[in-house]
Design a protein around this nucleic acid. Sequence first.
DNA 1: TGCCTAATGTGTAATATTTACGCAATAATA
DNA 2: TATTATTGCGTAAATATTACACATTAGGCA
Lengths: 234, 234
Amino acid sequence: MNPNSIGKDYLDHISIDCVIFGFHNKSLRVLLLKWKTINRWALPGGFIKKNEHADAAAQRVLSERTELSNIFLRQFHTFSDPDRNKADGNLDISLLPVRFSKEAIDWIKGRFVTIGYFALVDFNKVKPVPDLFSEECRWWELEQLPVLLYDHHHIVDAALIALRDALQYQPMGKYVMPKKFTLPELQKLYEVILGKKIDRRNFRKKILGLNIIHPLGETRKGGAHRSPDLYSFN
Amino acid sequence: MNPNSIGKDYLDHISIDCVIFGFHNKSLRVLLLKWKTINRWALPGGFIKKNEHADAAAQRVLSERTELSNIFLRQFHTFSDPDRNKADGNLDISLLPVRFSKEAIDWIKGRFVTIGYFALVDFNKVKPVPDLFSEECRWWELEQLPVLLYDHHHIVDAALIALRDALQYQPMGKYVMPKKFTLPELQKLYEVILGKKIDRRNFRKKILGLNIIHPLGETRKGGAHRSPDLYSFN
DNA sequence: TGCCTAATGTGTAATATTTACGCAATAATA
DNA sequence: TATTATTGCGTAAATATTACACATTAGGCA
């Protein structure tokens, strides 16, 4: 994003925000940005070009932050509380990057209706990249998020609920699991998303019955006990 | 809405559109507006005031069109195709109401990202009221919609899918059925929303098991055969 | 080397939910 | 009063979900 394009090339008062989910070490994570100067963590987001689809804008933000393309992306809700950017009362966005013009700063400080998306990515393939507003981009465990900018924590909560609902219909493990994985690993993913324990044996039966994964004939070595079989999505 | 407030009191490039569902004579219906001059039917919609929540804007539009308050309302998707208002290539919005200023007409002709809501109302309680752009407001059977403005037909389709999904989780008959109704009537509602036939006896078992309705001890007279019992939602 | 431990793979039984369908009761019509 | 079509009520079959027993395996350790 070009600092000079702020407030000119984009639609006014509309933004998109992405809750990017990854899975690593048995825990669900989201990719966050640390905003400059104000030192607050926030969701990756951006604006919509005057002739751009919001989905395209989200996909653009996603590729910029992760260096991935063709990411699983789904719009889940639009947040329009007129005071949603005032949740942080003591926060002055104008302290942000100095290279913005006064007009651009006024533009950014205005009200934004934001379209929320959630994305699913392979944790191992992501190369986190900060944007113009941020100095750092990294994964956070969903269970241990820092204080977030504005209403972003609320957006994350809503995204998780949307993901949970979606998982009932559509098996989306494909987008978050690495190429090779074990059934216990996949089960853990389901457990953290659904927020409940699942019986090993029933889970196996269910997933294998869906015919969406196949065994590779290999096992994951190195564990303390019996080596679990490795699978891949079809 | 005051014609002079167009393009001034509202957020630019953002609108809301409502798919208002009603149920009458065994069929699902939506409330549509016939736009002046261009004579095309469209969804009731409106703009968001500069300090207004989109939900409030939708509720406002809803009460204006139906003369009802406290309507069941749910946001389901935001439509952002930059060309969505160009689907009607030969349509010139500027032919619309003469009392708008040139600025207002330019504003309206611009791109709009629209937040889609669906609403459930009691058909019998609605008094359809046209808005500033329209000369008529009336119900249309979902199965026999006319050609709609822009991408509104697509919005209706998406709303129906959202309603269908929601009905699985939450019994929403309460909002569309009249105070007194029979089980076969309620069943028909489910059938038209879900798009499939349901077994009478299983439907009865399921609904009664939910403990959301109670018999009134009366029956609906006048039918050609056995009079069905009347129920109300709790 | 061989036992212990804990996790995985496989199977089966119990339970709950969904689906299918038979039959009696009833109200208008002829 | 018989006919007909629809409603109310009940039961059985099929399917899906849940619970749980037991054998297999790999590393740890004596």
